[in-house]
Design a protein around this nucleic acid. Structure first.
Lengths: 140, 140
DNA sequence: TCTTGACTTAAAGTGCACTCGAAGGTGTTT
DNA sequence: AAACACCTTCGAGTGCACTTTAAGTCAAGA
C-alpha cells in the first residue's frame, strides 16, 4: 500500500499555501517535493506534517531566513540538535515577549473602550480626559 | 507658566519616532504639530500623550489607514464616538484572536523543545518522531 | 484534439511602513 | 563665518514575503 501522493495543486489546497508559494519555498529550500518520472512534483503525508510544522514556526514570528537556517541545521543531522533547540527557545521567548507587549497595549485599548462607554452612559464627566481617566489605574 | 514646547529633534527622542516618521505621520494626518512664528514645528505634553496613544493602537495591530480613519472620526467630534468605540472593539477582538493563535503555535513549539530535550536526555526513544510524540497531547 | 495542469527561468509587481537624499532656504548659536 | 537644526517638495530606496507574468514545453485524460 503505497502512500498517497499529492500533486502541487491538490497539496496547495490541503496546506493553504498557493502553488506559487510552494515553489517559492522550494527555491528557498524549505519544502522540497519529490518528483515523478516526468519531473512533476509530488508531496506525501510527511510533507503535510512538515508544512504544518513550519507554519507553526512562522506563526510564532520566525522569519524565512531563520527558517532556512533551521532547515539547514536539520539537514546536518543530530549534531545540530542543541542549536535547533536553542533557536526554538529564542523564538518562543521572543513570541512570549511579543504577547506581553501586545497585552499591555490591549489594556490601554480596553480602558479607552470603557472610557467611551462611560462617556456615552454619562458615568464619566464630559470634561474628563482619557489621560486623567487612565491615571486611576496607574498603581495597579 | 507656558507649557514646555519641544522641537522635532527633541520630541523625536522623547517618543521614539524618527523625525522622518514624525513628518511622515503629519503628512498622513496623524500627528499635527503646531508651528512657531518661523514655521518651525513644536510639540507639547498633549502631543506626547497622543503619540503614546496611537502607538498603543499601532501596537495592537491597527494599520495606518485605519488609524487615519480613527483620527478623521475624532476630528468630527462626539457624534462619531460610537463608531470609534466599535473600531477599537474590533481592533481588540482581532488582537485577542491573534494572541490565541500565537499561543496555539507556541504550544507546538514548546512541545518540540521538550521533544528535543527528551532526545538529548534519552528519555524519548531515538526512533520516536515528533509527530508521534505530539499525538499523546491530542486529547488535551 | 483540446483542455488541464504541470514544468522551467527570470524578472517585475505588490503592499506596507517607513527611510533617506537631493537641493535649496531660514533662523539661532558659537 | 560656520555649524546646526529646522523648513519644503518629491521621488527613490529598503525589507519582507510573497505574487504574478511571460514564454515556452510536456503529458495525461475526456
Amino acid at each position: 500500500m503505497a502512500e498517497k501522493r499529492y500533486r502541487i495543486g491538490e497539496f496547495s489546497k490541503l496546506v493553504g499555501l498557493s502553488t506559487y508559494t510552494l515553489r517559492y519555498y522550494e527555491d528557498q529550500g524549505l519544502i522540497i517535493a519529490q518528483r515523478d518520472g516526468n519531473g512533476v512534483r509530488y508531496y506525501t503525508e510527511d510533507d503535510i506534517r512538515w508544512v504544518g510544522f513550519i507554519l507553526h514556526l512562522k506563526g510564532t514570528g520566525l522569519r524565512l531566513n531563520d527558517l532556512k537556517r533551521y532547515v539547514r541545521l536539520r539537514a546536518e543531522g543530530d549534531s545540530t540538535i542543541a542549536e535547533r533547540r536553542d533557536m526554538l527557545q529564542k523564538t518562543k521567548d521572543d513570541a512570549e515577549a511579543d504577547i506581553a507587549e501586545l497585552q499591555m497595549h490591549l489594556k490601554v485599548l480596553s480602558r479607552k473602550i470603557d472610557w467611551y462607554d462611560g462617556k456615552v452612559a454619562h458615568t464619566i464627566a464630559d470634561s474628563e480626559s482619557f489621560h486623567d481617566y487612565l491615571q486611576q489605574f496607574n498603581d495597579k
